[in-house]
Simulated scan of single mutants.
Amino acid sequence: MPRRPTRSVPVVVVPGWNGSGPGHWQTWLEEELAQAGRETRRPAFVDVDHPDLDEWLGALRASLAGLPDDGFDVVAHSLGAVLWLHHVGVTHGDPRPARVALVAPPSPATEYPEVVAFFPPPLDVDTVRRGADGTVLIAGSDDQYLPEGIAEAYGRPLKMATTIVEGGGHLNTESGYGAWPAMLDWCGRDNLAFF
């Protein structure tokens, strides 16, 4: 019998470049949480196809407005995870979430012209630790946008444990992640560890 979710705090879902539209696990997650009576929020980016760091930071801050310290979670994917690192570098996590899941952040050495302003992201250990009660890093073992691997790119610089999903690719629709029960389970538990 599946475990019933025990957490009831809001979840802020931060999509990446091109958004997380129909069929993406973030959209599926929002639908599942809504059915369970959970509040979800998503930053209202003006243009998900043409990311602008300052505009995205403003939209993220607006989506966090009014949330209580330690009373919400953040689930960020891809460029959204990199955005979160910029956010805590500027605001020091105000308001401060209880937990943050940074999923499949692209390599800090990413050089796509459309998102060059986002890279390299700030990787200050103390800032990221102050930005939430706890943060987890999750990535596929074969993510084409993270060729050096999550441990090398983010885990070691941030002195943070990582969760590697074998064969998970970029953990997006193209990798088969339309529904992701493990993430829904994480949202329903109080502990930080992903698996």
Rank of each mutant, 00 (worst) to 15 (best):
A151K: 04
V136G: 11
V165M: 03
H87T: 01
G23Q: 07
D69R: 08
V115K: 05
G149V: 10
S63Q: 12
A117Y: 11
M1T: 15
D142P: 08
L67K: 06
Y145M: 14
F195H: 15
G155M: 14
L67Y: 06
P5Q: 00
S20W: 06
F72I: 03
F118R: 04
P120L: 10
G21Q: 09
H87D: 07
V115P: 00
L64G: 08
F119M: 12
R41F: 08
P95V: 07
H50D: 08
E32H: 09
E166F: 00
T40S: 06
V13F: 08
I138K: 09
A179Y: 00
D52Y: 13
G93Y: 02
G167T: 02
D73R: 03
Q144C: 13
W56T: 09
G155P: 14
T6A: 11
V116E: 10
P157H: 13
W180V: 03
T27D: 14
F195K: 14
G89K: 05
R189M: 03
P105D: 11
A98N: 02
A62C: 13
G16D: 05
G188F: 00
V136Q: 15
G176E: 03
R129G: 05
D69Q: 08
E55Q: 11
L102V: 05
G21F: 10
T163M: 07
W180M: 05
V74R: 02
G66R: 12
I138F: 15
W180Y: 06
Y145N: 13
M1Y: 10
S141M: 02
V82Q: 00
G149Q: 10
S78H: 06
G19K: 10
G168M: 01
Q35E: 15
H50N: 10
G169Q: 06
F45G: 01
G155H: 15
L102M: 14
A98G: 10
P121W: 12
A104S: 08
V14A: 05
E166T: 05
A161G: 14
L79R: 01
F118W: 09
A151H: 10
Y177T: 02
L137N: 06
H24D: 06
A153Q: 09
H87R: 08
N172Q: 06
F72S: 01
S175D: 11
T135V: 15
D185I: 00
T173G: 01
G89D: 13
C187E: 01
V12N: 05
E31R: 15
V165W: 00
E30Y: 09
